[in-house]
Amino acid sequence: MSRLKIAIQKSGRLHDKSIELLKDCGVSVQNGKDQLKVRAANFPLDILYLRNSDIPKYLEDGVADIAIVGENLLIEKQKNVSVIRPLGFSKCRVSLAVPKSVSTDDLSYFNGKRIATSYPNTLKRFLDAEGIQANIHQIAGSVEIAPSIGLADGVCDIVSSGSTLFKNGLRETQVILRSEAVLAKAPDLSPEKEAILDKLCFRIDAVLRGKASKYVLLNVPNEKVEAVSALLPVLKSPTILPLAQEGWSSLHTVIGESQFWDVIEELKAAGAEDILVIPIDKIVR
């Protein structure tokens, strides 16, 4: 029987989130110490723990069939792989930053300057598109230290909260691209492996929809049910159940995380009371 091989980061935040997603999808992952390959017990999936920067190449070569990897890395490496879907976690941006002593945010500052980066291809494409002539110094790690030791006049690096830049006396000036973890696949998967991938994606989609939504129960006077219902951004229509107290009903619905607080405020203003909010594990369609 065919088994799908998925590559994930060997260690770090992306590793932890990837394992969490697989477990939420019902995939049993038992990690042995220092194991670089693990076989799922209850799903035809083998997990390969690889160095993050190597994943795009292994994916292109077919050593791995699919991977959970940062989109920024795929853009930098430019391998022949395709993104199946974004996963909504490990969000970051690739940005230019300068020493705090530099007062301008203008991109022209970098003309003729030295920029240290672990993303030379991404940076070069951006600078070429903007007509900026700069000297790119490729560094494998600890990019933020480059200006303070005189190696560069600025940096181009991944930024999440910005705290690492701040601690190293830098500030962000230009965002080159925004990124998050994505599910990517190798070219030319066999029909058998495509079928397994479809099953995995079905589970992933159910988990992601659940994480992006809240289940909401609210009590409403019967004369206000129609007005309150009109405010609800529901999957189909709200469930309406009569309460033991005459003249009142309970409405059950699902609200997207991004809309949640605005909608709740509108519901309160329209007459909803005793609003109960419950996290959703999965939404299967």
Rank of each mutant, 00 (worst) to 15 (best):
G26Y: 06
V83R: 11
L127I: 03
I47M: 02
A97C: 11
V102D: 02
E71P: 00
D106V: 01
D105Y: 15
K33P: 00
Q138G: 00
N42V: 04
Y58N: 10
A116L: 11
D24R: 15
R39Y: 12
Q133T: 15
K79S: 09
R39F: 11
N80T: 06
V27Q: 08
N135P: 00
G26T: 08
D65I: 05
L74V: 03
G112Q: 11
T122I: 10
A64T: 07
L74P: 02
L59T: 01
L73E: 02
G32K: 08
S101N: 13
R51M: 03
R93N: 05
L59P: 02
V83D: 06
T104D: 03
D105V: 10
V38Y: 05
E130V: 12
S82F: 14
I66C: 07
G70W: 09
R39W: 10
G62Y: 04
I136M: 03
L96S: 07
S95R: 15
L74K: 03
G131N: 00
L36C: 01
F110D: 03
N121S: 13
S103D: 14
D106I: 02
F89D: 03
S103W: 13
A41D: 01
Y49N: 00
P99G: 09
K91A: 08
V27A: 08
T122M: 07
S101M: 15
V27W: 04
V38T: 04
P44N: 04
C25D: 03
V27I: 14
G62D: 02
H137K: 12
L87P: 01
L96E: 07
A116P: 02
K77Q: 07
S118L: 13
D61P: 02
C92Y: 13
G88Y: 08
V29N: 05
L87F: 08
Q138S: 14
E76K: 08
V94I: 13
I84G: 03
K37D: 01
D106M: 10
A41Y: 03
N135G: 05
K91G: 04
A41L: 07
G32T: 09
C92F: 15
S118E: 11
S90H: 03
S118R: 15
I132H: 09
L45Y: 07
D24S: 13
D34K: 09
D54V: 06
V102Y: 10
I139V: 15
A41S: 12
L127R: 02
P86A: 06
N80L: 14
R93K: 15
L50P: 00
D34Q: 06
